[in-house]
């Protein structure tokens, strides 16, 4: 089911994500998805996440769909030009994949093939525009498609705690104009900043799912503060992670923080997108503590 139908029904939508493996045997990834069965509305599949070469997102989405899951196919502009992107979007339609998340993508220099050619033939905005054109029955060059045009629900991303925020907002507006139908955000740890962001984008009238990344350790929090754009883990959360080392190591502290953030963010947004980064087994506990299942 397209996520926009759930938003239209007024449901608080919950998504999580899986990252395909470095290799072709995807049983483990599918097992990770099994943990989420019945607990989330859809599962994102990342596209060579962090510019690290992996098994494909499209094939993983296909396997998920076959097993009765609702996949969200993440597509970045880093690795494919406009021909390959459109081709993969048509492939997705044939596999019955209904939800897309369209992103620019990290630069290859951040990943494990630093010498790769950064493609970026399109960017997130022009990619959304491209899918809209396909939905209208022609390709980006204006050539007519044969048969029924594909139909999707188009997602995009935004960084709500970025500083400065204004450049993010104009791009968000541009994505909406191009055809974005919902947003998933970068990880949020500062609820007050997120609330201010929501106030600013209220007039856009578009469903927004707040991003949640489970805090695994003090080191991870500090790393994100140093290196991850638009993410800031406040001191009080770092202190909380420091307090009981065993509890943090077992993931308990991360679960508690994530559940608390969800509870605090819920009144202000239309859904939550969890990015467990391999900690899918913690997702049910988070959702249950947050009162969502």
């Amino acid at each position: 089911m397209e996520l926009k139908e759930l938003f239209a029904k007024g449901k608080f939508v919950v998504t999580s994500e899986v990252g395909p493996p470095k290799g072709w045997q995807i049983e483990k990834t599918l097992e990770e998805a099994e943990i989420l069965r019945g607990k989330v509305d859809a599962i994102n599949v990342t596209d060579n996440q962090s510019s690290v070469m992996r098994f494909g997102a499209l094939a993983t989405c296909h396997f998920l769909k076959d097993r009765g899951f609702e996949p969200v196919f993440q597509i970045t502009c880093r690795d494919r030009n406009r021909l390959a992107l459109q081709s993969d979007i048509l492939n997705a339609a044939a596999f019955g994949i209904e939800n897309l998340l369209l992103l620019t993508g990290d630069h290859p220099l951040l990943g494990d093939h630093k010498d790769a050619k950064p493609v970026f033939d399109l960017d997130s905005v022009s990619l959304i525009h491209t899918v809209k054109k396909l939905e209208d029955g022609s390709d980006l060059a204006g050539n007519k498609l044969e048969g029924e045009p594909p139909k999707f629900c188009l997602g995009a991303v935004v960084s709500p705690c970025a500083e400065p925020l204004e450049p993010q907002l104009f791009k968000m507006e541009k994505k909406i104009k191009a055809g974005a139908e919902f947003f998933q955000t970068q990880a949020v740890y500062e609820v007050d900043k997120f609330v201010k962001f929501m106030e600013k984008v209220k007039n856009f009238g578009i469903p927004i799912m707040a991003g949640i990344v489970i805090l695994k350790s003090v080191g991870m929090a500090k790393y994100m503060n140093e290196n991850v754009a638009g993410v800031f883990v406040p001191d009080n959360l770092i202190e909380e992670l420091k307090k009981d080392k065993e509890k943090t190591k077992s993931g308990q502290t991360g679960i508690e923080i994530a559940a608390r953030l969800i509870k605090e963010l819920k009144p202000y947004c239309q859904g939550i997108h969890l990015m467990p980064l391999g900690w899918n087994d913690k997702v049910p506990a988070i959702l249950s503590q947050a009162g969502l299942i």
């Binding site: 620019t104 630069h107 960017d123 104009f170 541009k174």
Partner: peptide, 18 residues
């Protein structure tokens, strides 16, 4: 760095490119 034409990618931190 990505020669983007429609706005920033969200990868900048403290005004610096990723």
């Amino acid at each position: 760095a990505k020669s983007l034409l429609n706005g920033p990618c969200g990868g900048a931190k403290n005004g610096k490119c990723e």
